[in-house]
């Protein structure tokens, strides 16, 4: 291998790799069905305060199982559509904690906060008989979660572009 010091052509691989990483990052755009599926998933999550109060126990657990199935399907579909397995993996989450994966972490923390706040608020409103207000809170929370999901994917895209590497 020749020593390329002083040869500007030696820089070409680095420039090329930057452009290729940018191309790879551009593949990490969610298809329309992913965002629709995410909205359905969060709708199921934010329906839980209603279902736990108004539905029998068996129906409540059926909704929980449906939400888990939608989450798995969405991840599988995104992996296939983008050709990349990116983001926090379930086994690593169990081993290294919920927020081990660095790219898009602020958005994922915000998603957790929004989820908890919305569910607590909904439960409180339902207890006081303010059903309409609880439905509005759930709808706003679904919109916020979908927006935050997009922000998390944007963080992953930026990381791929910069070559930050998975944590």
């Amino acid at each position: 291998m020749r020593d390329a010091a002083g040869d500007p052509a030696a820089l070409e691989p680095l420039e090329r790799l930057r452009a290729q990483r940018s191309r790879l990052a551009d593949r990490m755009r969610p298809p329309w069905w992913y965002l629709t599926g995410a909205a359905i998933l969060y709708a199921l999550v934010f329906a839980s305060p209603f279902s736990s109060r108004y539905l029998p126990q068996s129906d409540y657990w059926a909704i929980v199982v449906a939400a888990l199935a939608v989450a798995c399907l969405l991840q599988w579909g995104l992996d296939r559509a983008t050709g990349m397995k990116v983001g926090p993996r379930p086994l690593r989450v169990l081993r290294d904690g919920l927020f081990y994966y660095r790219p898009g972490r602020p958005a994922r923390i915000a998603m957790m906060v929004v989820s908890l706040a919305a569910i607590v608020t909904e439960a409180s409103l339902i207890r006081h008989g303010l059903l309409a207000a609880a439905i509005v809170v759930a709808a706003l929370a679904v919109a916020a979660e979908v927006a935050l999901q997009q922000a998390a994917l944007r963080g992953i895209r930026q990381d791929l572009r910069g070559g930050g590497g998975a944590a």
Binding site: L24, R27, D159, G164, G165
Partner: peptide
């Protein structure tokens, strides 16, 4: 370089297209 960019696994077609 592409495999180190941050994805856990990259599929053949995605790698081929990104690498050109």
């Amino acid at each position: 370089g592409l495999l180190a960019a941050g994805a856990d696994w990259v599929e053949f077609a995605a790698l081929r297209d990104a690498a050109g």
